[in-house]
């Protein structure tokens, strides 16, 4: 058995990362991802995207990252997709479903997809040298606390990513203000 899994069991953590579970989730993510681009109806595509996001969230859970899973659930599947559906319902679906699905940009899209694929394959092939050879058994019970320590710092010290985190939140704030100013003519 994999030493990481053995140590995970010894530290009182049951192995949830069974291959069967992974293949089901990955298959679901790919199948629904294909459905997102092939469905003519925008609402069907949005529903398929929700399934994709949820199965990717399940993969996060398998990687012992429950907090990222919760954020995926909350922000993407719950919040953003709801707004997507909200907007899709307001536009005329009838007209958009009659338009051509694949426009002239398909060559560029194919090139980008191939480049990404090549990146993934090279990461997979060179994985042994790029990444540690075994999974670091992170304690699931303190995952959220560790993320908080990295982002906000602990014991009076600044966290490793505090600055980047604050910059990102500032960027989001600017985006929100920009959206308000663009939609509201008179403030």
């Amino acid at each position: 058995m994999n030493p990481a899994v053995t140590s995970a069991i010894n530290s009182g953590m049951a192995p949830v990362a069974t291959p069967w579970f992974f293949y089901v989730l990955a298959g679901l993510a790919i199948a629904s991802g294909v459905a997102v681009v092939t469905r003519r109806n925008a609402v069907h595509a949005a529903l398929a995207l929700i399934v994709t996001l949820l199965s990717v969230g399940g993969l996060y859970l398998m990687l012992y990252a429950p907090f990222v899973f919760a954020v995926q659930l909350f922000v993407y599947a719950g919040g953003i997709m709801l707004l997507f559906l909200f907007v899709i319902m307001l536009v005329n679906v009838e007209r958009s479903s009659k338009e051509r699905r694949f426009n002239r940009m398909w060559a560029v899209g194919l090139a980008v997809a191939c480049a990404l694929m090549a990146l993934f394959i090279s990461a997979f092939v060179k994985g042994r040298t790029l990444f540690p050879d075994r999974m670091i058994p992170l304690p699931e019970s303190s995952n959220t606390q560790q993320i908080a320590g990295l982002l906000y710092g602990e014991a009076g010290r600044m966290g490793q990513y505090t600055f980047a985190f604050e910059i990102a939140s500032l960027l989001l704030l600017v985006a929100i203000l920009g959206a308000v100013i663009m939609t509201k003519k008179k403030i």
Binding site: P66, F67, L73, F74, G78, E140, T144
Partner: peptide
């Protein structure tokens, strides 16, 4: 470990 986040997240899917 993420109990309350999980609850709020999943119940927000109900909408």
């Amino acid at each position: 470990n993420i109990g309350i986040l999980f609850m709020l997240g999943v119940s927000s899917l109900g909408v």
